[in-house]
Design a binder for these strands. Structure first.
Length: 916
RNA sequence: GCGGAUGUGGCGUAAUGGCAGCCGCGCCAGACUUAGGAUCUGGUGCCGAGAGGCGUGGGGGUUCGAGUCCCUUCAUCCGCACCA
């Protein structure tokens, strides 16, 4: 009888669940190892074969570490707050909680079938009150903290209040200077909000009218929402934000200490966007006001031909001359109504307007016109730039468009056509620049900054592209922000009032007055029955910003994580997930980790030591070709003779591009009477690589594979597809190779139905095969090269089959080393070998190098690098002896063709190369 | 524009600077057979009848020897993008 994977897999999955096999030890003397997957958002579509790719890899690693004697934490949970469940709720009226529960149940069922070694007792769901209680709690800590630049750490806001209370501190309020104690409660609150790490402020937000909510920068792609693809506009709104910018420098610097892929680190560096430069003030002519610009090229100050303000800049209305007022107002209206998408779409289109006002050049005293242009971003730097058209591409384009003068003040080291292009490089000598004349650019930058600082015109400054993270969403299905308002002052709840539960609402839509769905809650949903709660909820990434900590101590009702658990588990040793979270989740989780570390609540400042991004699994769509509007379909190879329409066909009724015609006829009612033009008696479908999606009929579900071939087969095949980090299309046709391998592995231990194990000692060649494989598998796993492992197992089993080897001494270690990859069959074989303890905690076999030592090597003998023949020599021979031996060979003489070799290279255990 | 990644048979891929194509899929031939999506054996980079030649996106270089290292160029994918 063949290997019955259905029975065996079910049996061991039940065994692991019953025995809680994968529960880590509480008080362990073993070294710890924490393997984490990015937890999924449980969507209604269920898992497709792409989802488990990373989970399989991490599971192999976790299982390997257990075999290596580590106490392994390998948990799983659900990121269960989010938009899709809410959109579905809006459409159907069904509570998102119900949809979420159903989806989670489906996910769990699918995950269970694959045989993962998760400790399900630690499952977290971000939408569960006992979890989001602590998300709210962390929010309160953020609210109660400020970032002290002197200690370079977050501290309790009380230390700031102490500073403020010091006699000398004065605050400008409505034009009056007051001491802190003299401020009203509201004034104190407003002042502190400017420092709290969670704060309320008027902010330019990405507003998405269709979704009825604001979005974070990384939730907006190309000016439309990432989810749904709806237009996004800029809007000024009172919003909760998190002061992630306080951590910009640390988020940047600490990247050097973590083992993450270079592409993710680089994406984060770009996103943080540190740039060092200087601020510089320009006095406005006939005014007491000044315009402060930020520039990274203060050396070009003598080349300034105009100053540009962002349309939203505060001074715009103040400085515009009456003559220019109409034009400026028109332009501002234009710029305001232009959506982000439009603005980004025609970046090349130059727009702007002259204000009529001038600034005075700080060094030359000359008049310089002030322009407005939307190429200057309000949110970056000071929202104002000094424009040097000859040495900045954007200023160059603007100056050309509006015919503004350009002044060359750097001589490039090579020929340069200043009519065609600006010269932006930081190389060359300064000219026409007063005290900077003759200096190289880099020296000029240093010099000019010192002069600027000396004259108090500005100072050296660092800017970041990173913005504070907008933390409120005008949506229902998220964590309520634990804030209430008393006389218009935002106050956080007391810890003992948590969790602030999501209230019931009649509809999941904004109110008629445009307030978020939570405003629909009954009037009894009030703090102490009277104060309104905040109506925004937290964004989707709130719960995922700290979940790795909760797994360490998932049921703690007193703390978000206990000191003991946090000290033992530290942080994630191996984190596996998709690269799409590069600047979202992976930045926020680093931020929260640093914050919690500052407060002394956890011992680590980074969430994950090592991060691996698994590649995307794309779908391979299949097409049938319908002739015109008929019900007749022509096979792919013959389609050029007809006028056809390609139609997606369900890939599950296509095998190696051959259509199952009977299945096609019942797939859709209208296909019942379909006719076909075949080639070689088959209908061949066309194919194309596309994103795996329902609408393209190319979704392959892991359930189907597990049902037909087994979980071990799915696991091995997903790994066999190629390097983990590489994206690749899913093609089920190759799976038979892996399926055959599993059967072959089974047969190695059996003779017919019966187990057939020999107790005889193994021979040297047999030992060599298995030890070579042990060494290779350990090396592969430690290097995350799972695809090559599968091929090594195949080689090993093929070789042992050839030798008809069924010796315990060989087959026992084989069962252990394959267990991380194919745990079900490994458990079964291990059990049949007579072990009562499962294979999950067996000891990974040690490599005995002595079995791998060869006594001789068959040297390829090459002439000018071309291999001509092989000659075996004992490895004890020296290079000189081999050289001598080779020269005596008849073959050598033949290829020498009577010539004398110029040189003979002998590389021990490698090659002989004769240079003629 | 900037940054990251990837280019090897019909396909997925493999190769500490040392025999390019391991392991599979597919294909070809054969064995067995109650004909099949089973199992087993052999073959399979390209050109060539053969000897042999050519081959890792293209071009150059380093080296006795390069898929691998260096320079340059092209193509594809991904991320960021008026960030002063």
């Amino acid at each position: 009888m063949e290997y019955n994977f259905r029975e065996v897999e079910k049996k061991w999955q039940a065994y692991w669940a019953k025995n809680k096999t994968f529960k880590p030890e509480e008080k362990s003397t073993k070294p710890k190892y924490y393997v984490l997957d990015m937890f999924p958002y449980p969507s209604g579509a269920g898992l497709h074969v792409g989802h488990p790719l990373g989970y399989i890899a991490s599971d192999i690693f976790a299982r390997y570490k257990r075999l290596k004697g580590f106490n392994v934490l390998h948990p799983m949970g659900y990121d269960s707050f989010g938009l899709p469940a809410e959109q579905y709720a809006i459409q159907t009226g069904q509570h998102p909680e119900i949809t979420t529960k159903t989806n989670i149940a489906r996910y769990r069922e699918q995950l269970d079938k694959i045989g993962f070694s998760f400790d399900w007792d630690r499952e977290v769901r971000t939408s569960n009150p006992d979890y989001y209680k602590w998300t709210q709690w962390i929010f309160i800590q953020l609210f109660n903290s400020w970032y002290n630049p002197e200690t370079n750490k977050a501290e309790n806001i009380s230390t700031l209040i102490e500073k403020f209370k010091v006699q000398s501190s004065k605050f400008q309020v409505g034009g009056v200077e007051k001491k802190y104690a003299e401020l009203s409660e509201k004034e104190q609150s407003d002042l502190l909000l400017e420092h709290r790490l969670a704060y309320l402020s008027d902010t330019m937000v990405n507003w998405c009218p269709q979704l009825g909510t604001v979005l974070a920068n990384e939730e907006v792609k190309d000016g439309v929402s990432e989810r749904g693809g709806y237009p996004v506009e800029r809007k000024l709104m009172k919003q909760w934000s998190l002061r992630i910018t306080a951590y910009a420098d640390r988020l940047l610097n600490d990247l050097d200490g973590i083992d993450w892929t270079e592409s993710i680190k680089e994406a984060q560096r770009n996103w943080i966007g540190k740039s060092e430069g200087t601020s510089l003030k320009f006095k406005i002519e006939n005014s007491t006001s000044e315009i402060e610009v930020f520039t990274t090229r203060p050396d070009t100050v003598f080349g300034v031909s105009f100053v540009t303000l962002a349309p939203e800049h505060d001074l715009v209305s103040q400085i515009t001359t009456p003559a220019q007022k109409t034009a400026v107002d028109e332009y501002i209206t234009f710029a305001k109504n232009r959506s982000e998408r439009e603005r980004m779409a025609d970046v090349k289109k130059i727009t702007g307007v002259f204000t009529g006002a001038f600034v005075i050049h700080p060094f030359t005293g000359k008049q310089i016109p002030i322009w407005i242009g939307d190429y200057v971003l309000a949110g970056y730097g000071t929202g104002a730039v000094m424009a040097v058209p000859s040495h900045d591409t954007r200023d160059f384009a603007f100056a050309n468009h509006f015919s503004i003068d350009k002044k060359i003040i750097i001589t490039p080291p090579t020929e340069w056509d200043f009519e065609k292009n600006s010269y932006d490089e930081k190389e060359g000598k300064l000219i026409d620049s007063d005290f900077l004349n003759g200096l190289e650019v880099k020296a000029a930058i240093k010099k000019v900054i010192s002069v600027i600082e000396e004259k108090e015109l500005g100072k050296g400054k660092t800017n970041f592209r990173l913005r504070d993270a907008i933390f409120g969403r005008q949506r229902y299905w998220g964590e309520p922000i634990p804030v209430y308002y008393e006389n218009g002052i935002p106050k956080v709840l007391d810890e003992k009032e948590l969790p602030l539960l999501l209230p019931e609402v009649d509809k999941y839509l904004p109110t008629e007055t445009g307030e978020p769905p939570l405003a629909r809650a009954s009037s009894s949903w009030r703090k102490d029955g009277k104060h309104e709660y905040e109506y925004s909820t937290m964004p989707g990434w709130a719960g995922s910003s700290w979940y790795f900590l909760r797994y360490m101590d998932a049921h703690n009702e007193k703390e978000f994580v206990s000191k003991e658990a946090a000290n033992y588990w530290q942080n994630v040793d191996l984190y596996i997930g998709g690269a799409e979270h590069a600047t979202g989740h992976l930045l926020y989780v680093r931020f929260w980790t640093k914050f919690l570390n500052d407060l002394g609540l956890i011992p680590v400042s980074e969430p994950a030591k090592k991060l691996i991004n698994q590649g995307m699994i794309q779908g391979v769509s299949n097409f049938v070709y319908r002739i015109g509007t008929s019900n007749k379909y022509v096979s792919s190879g013959l389609k050029k003779d007809y006028d056809t329409t390609p139609l997606h066909v369900d890939v599950n009724i296509v095998n190696n591009n051959v259509l199952d015609i009977e299945a096609f006829k019942i797939w859709r009612e209208e296909n019942k009477n379909a006719e076909f033009i075949l080639e070689d008696g088959k209908y061949i479908c066309g194919s194309e690589v596309e994103k795996m999606s329902k609408s393209k009929w190319n979704v392959v579900s892991p359930d189907v594979i597990v049902e037909q071939q087994g979980a071990d087969c799915l696991r091995l095949y997903e790994m066999f597809l190629g390097p983990l980090e590489q994206s690749k299309p899913w093609n089920t046709s190759g799976i038979s190779g892996v399926s055959n391998f599993i059967r072959k592995l089974w047969r190695l231990y059996h003779n017919g139905d019966a187990l057939n194990i020999s107790e005889e000692p193994a021979t040297k060649p047999e030992l060599k095969i298995v030890h070579k494989t042990i060494k290779k598998i350990a090396h592969d796993i430690e290097n995350f090269s799972f695809n090559t492992s599968v091929s090594s197992f195949m080689i090993c089993v093929n070789e042992l089959t050839d030798l008809k080897c069924n010796k315990r001494e060989i087959l026992e270690p084989l069962a252990i080393i394959i267990a991380p990859y194919a745990p079900h069959i490994a458990e079964e074989l291990w059990n049949k070998l007579g072990h009562t303890e499962g294979v999950s905690y067996a000891k990974f076999p040690e490599v005995n190098e002595s079995y791998l030592v060869e006594s001789a090597f068959s040297y390829p003998v090459s002439f000018n690098g071309k291999t001509r023949f092989f000659q075996e020599y004992d490895l004890s021979l020296t290079k000189e002896q081999i050289e001598k031996e080779v020269m005596t060979l008849e073959q050598t003489q033949k290829y020498l063709e009577g010539k004398t070799p110029k040189k003979i290279i002998v590389v021990h255990n490698k090659i002989v190369n004769i240079v003629i």
